[in-house]
Design a protein around this nucleic acid. Structure first.
Lengths: 351, 351
DNA sequence: GTGGTCTAATGAAACCGTTCAATGACGCTC
DNA sequence: GAGCGTCATTGAACGGTTTCATTAGACCAC
C-alpha cells in the first residue's frame, strides 16, 4: 500500500523546465550549472518543498551518510556520554549519528547489525556485548567499516578504542588494599562481558602486588544495572559478619549506586562499615548519597577518537587505500571520594 | 567512488538458477514458491551471505521499517527510559528503533527531522524543543506520521502523549507550601521550553491556592543539565539570608542534583537550610546525596503509548482510513523523600 | 561570411537492487 | 481441447546519479 504520493525530482524538473540531470547537478555539483538555471531550479525546489529521497540516492551511491552506534545499554550515562563525543566529531563532517540499543543481548546486537547492513549505513561504532559477532564481519565484507568501542580489538582485527580495563581494575583494587582492607568483594556480571573479565583480572593482579594475602570474593550479577547492585548488597549483608568483606569494588557506577542503596537500607554505613568504589565515574557518581570513588574513563574522548578512526577507515575503503587497523588505548584515572575514605576519617565531597 | 561490490539478489538468482522474482518471493511470500525451489534459493542465500538492500526495497515500498525518536537530551535518563518503553512496543511489530539527539537546539532538531524525511522512515516520535516545527509538518505532508512526546499536541494537531506538567508543577509547589515555606525558588530554563512554562504555571496556581501570600522567585537557567543547577545554587547562595528562599523547586532532577551539589559545596544543608524537590523521578533521584523528592512521570508508559499511537496513525495512512488525532495525558505523582522532610525531622530514605 | 575547433551547459538514457502486477508454461481434470 | 491451478518468469516501476552525447555559442583562420 503506497503512501500519499510525494513530490519527486521529476516534479521539480518539470516546474523549472529542465531535465532530471540538471536538478541533480544543482544539488550535487552546482558549479556545473549556469547561475540562471540554478536559480530557477532552486526556486522550484523551494516552492514544492522537495526533499531528496535518501533511499534512491543511496541505492546508486552504495551507502548513506549516517553513522550508527550500537550500545549495550542506552540508559547507562557512560554510553550516552561516549555518544556525545561521537556526535561532535561526526557532525563536523556532514554525517549524522543514530543510536541503537542491544540491551546487552547478543541476539539483539546481531539483529541491530543486520538492520544496519540492510540500511547500508556509512559506518558502525560497536560497543560489543560478547565475543566477536559474525554480523560485524559481514558488515566489513560488504565494505562498511566497523570500529569497536570500549574493547580492545587487537585479536578481532578491527580498529578499536578502549580504556585499559585491566589497569582500571588493578587501580581500584590497589586503592582498596592500600587502605588496609584485606577482604574485598568484586561485584559484576555477567561473566561473559569482557569488561567484567578484564577488571577482575586487574583485581587479581593488585592482590598479587600486595603480597597475595588479601581475599577477593567474586560476586556475579545478572546485569550491570542498579537493580543488580541492590540484590548484590542483600547477598553480602546476609553473610556472617566475620566473612563479610569490608570493601566492595563494583564494576560500574550503576551497580555501585545500587549497592550503596542496598547497604543503606540494611543500616550499613559507607565507608565506615564497608568501603565502596565504582567504575566509569558517570556524573551521578559524585552526587550519590555518599559521593562515590570511581575509576574515570575519558568518555567523550573515547567517542571522538572512535569516530576519527571510523572516518579514516571509510576513506580507505572509498579510495581503495591500504588500511592498517589501529587500537587506541586510553588509561583510566582513579577518582577518590568519600565512599572509600579511611574508616573514621571525613573526606570532603569532591568533584 | 563505489564501495566494494556487494552480492545482490541477482547473484543469488543466478546461483540458484531461478529468476529475480522467485528470489523475491522466497523472501517475502514463501507460500508462492514450491518447496524444492525454495530450498535451492535458501541454500544460495546462505552460501553467498546475501542481505537484502534496504534502500532498494524502501525505494519501492516508499518507506522503511524504522521508527525514529528525536529527543532533547539523550543523556537525560528520563528520555532513555521513555525510549525503552518505545523499544518494547516497536520490537513486537518487527520494526526497529533508532534515536537521535537534538541537544535542545531547534536547528539541530530541524536538521534531524530533515534527515529522517530523507530516509523516509516509517514514523517519528518527537520530543520537541520549542514551538511547532515546520519540518514536522513537512514529514506529515509526506505521509510520515509524527507523534509528539512529552507535550500536549492539541494545539498543533498531532497525536501526542504527555504528562500534565501544570498539575505536576502545582503538586510540587503545593507540597513545599504545605510544609510551611513562604518563599520558593522555581529553577529551570530556558523559558522557551514548554515544560518550563507549564510547570511554572502550575507553581503559580499552587501559590494562588495557598492564599497567594507566598513569594515565588523565578530563576532561569540556560539548560536543564546538572551544571546549570550548580550555577543556580551559586546564585541563590549569594543572596542575603533574608531574601534567600527556603525551598527550591527544580524543573528536573538533573538540575536538582546540580543544586544539591552546589548547596553542599557552600555548606547549606538540605533539607534543613533549604528544601529541594526535583521533577521526573529518574532512578538517580532516590540515590542522591540527599534522596530527592520528585514528581514521577510514567516514563516507560509514555513511550509505549506513544508508539501505539504512532502505529495507529501509520495504519490509517497506509489504508487511507480516517484518523482522529488523540492526546493522551498522564497524571504525574508526587514522590516525597528526605530532601523535603520538614525541617528538623528525619525521614527515612525511601525507594 | 564560411567553416572549423573548443568550451560550457543541458539533455537523454542507462543504471542501482528491489517489488509487484501481469503473463506464460505446464500438467490436470472434465 | 477448454478451463483451471500452480509455479515461475518478465518487465515496468521506484527516485535518484552519472556517463555520454548534443547543442549553442565564442573565437579564430581563411
Amino acid at each position: 500500500m503506497p503512501r500519499r504520493s510525494s513530490t519527486s525530482m521529476k516534479d521539480v524538473a518539470a516546474l523549472a523546465g529542465v531535465s532530471l540531470g540538471t536538478v541533480s547537478n544543482v544539488v550535487n555539483s552546482p558549479a556545473l550549472v549556469s547561475a540562471a538555471t540554478r536559480d530557477r531550479v532552486e526556486v522550484a525546489i523551494q516552492k514544492l518543498g522537495w526533499v531528496p529521497n535518501e533511499s534512491a540516492r543511496q541505492l546508486r551511491a552504495g551507502r548513506s551518510r549516517v553513522i550508527s552506534m550500537v550500545v549495550m545499554d542506552i540508559s547507562n550515562p557512560f554510553f550516552t556520554d561516549v555518544l556525545r563525543g561521537v556526535e561532535d566529531e561526526v557532525h563536523d563532517r556532514g554525517y549524522h549519528v543514530q543510536a541503537s540499543n542491544s540491551a546487552s543481548q547478543p541476539e539483539r546486537e546481531s539483529e541491530q547489525l543486520r538492520v544496519l547492513e540492510q540500511q547500508r549505513v556509512g559506518g558502525v561504532l560497536l560497543a560489543p556485548v560478547g565475543g566477536p559477532n559474525g554480523r560485524a564481519d559481514a558488515l566489513r565484507r560488504r565494505g562498511i567499516p566497523v570500529v569497536i568501542v570500549d574493547r580492545a580489538g587487537d585479536e578481532t582485527g578491527y580498529c578499536s578504542v578502549s580504556v585499559d580495563d585491566v589497569e582500571g581494575g588493578r587501580m581500584a583494587t590497589d586503592h582498596l588494599l592500600g587502605l588496609g582492607h584485606t577482604s574485598v568483594a568484586v561485584v559484576g556480571g555477567p561473566g561473559t562481558l569482557h569488561q567484567v573479565r578484564d577488571r577482575r583480572l586487574g583485581a587479581e593482579i593488585a592482590r598479587g602486588q600486595h603480597g597475595g594475602t588479601a581475599s577477593l570474593l567474586t560476586v556475579t550479577t545478572p546485569s550491570m544495572e542498579a537493580a543488580s547492585g541492590v540484590a548484590a548488597a542483600d547477598q553480602l549483608v546476609s553473610l556472617p559478619d566475620a566473612e563479610r568483606p569490608t570493601a566492595v569494588f563494583a564494576m560500574n557506577d550503576l551497580l555501585a549506586i545500587g549497592l550503596l542503596q542496598g547497604f543503606v537500607t540494611h543500616g550499613l554505613r559507607v565507608p565506615d562499615d564497608v568501603a565502596l568504589i565504582g567504575y566509569d565515574d558517570i556524573s551521578f557518581a559524585a552526587s550519590a548519597a555518599v559521593p562515590l570513588s570511581s575509576v574515570r574513563q575519558p568518555r567523550a574522548d573515547l567517542g571522538r577518537r572512535a569516530a576519527e578512526l571510523l572516518f579514516e577507515e571509510m576513506d580507505a575503503v572509498d579510495h581503495d587505500l591500504a588500511h592498517e587497523h589501529q587500537s587506541v588505548r586510553f588509561t583510566p584515572e582513579l577518582v577518590v571520594r568519600r565512599s572509600t575514605a579511611p574508616a573514621g576519617a571525613k573526606a570532603p565531597a569532591s568533584g
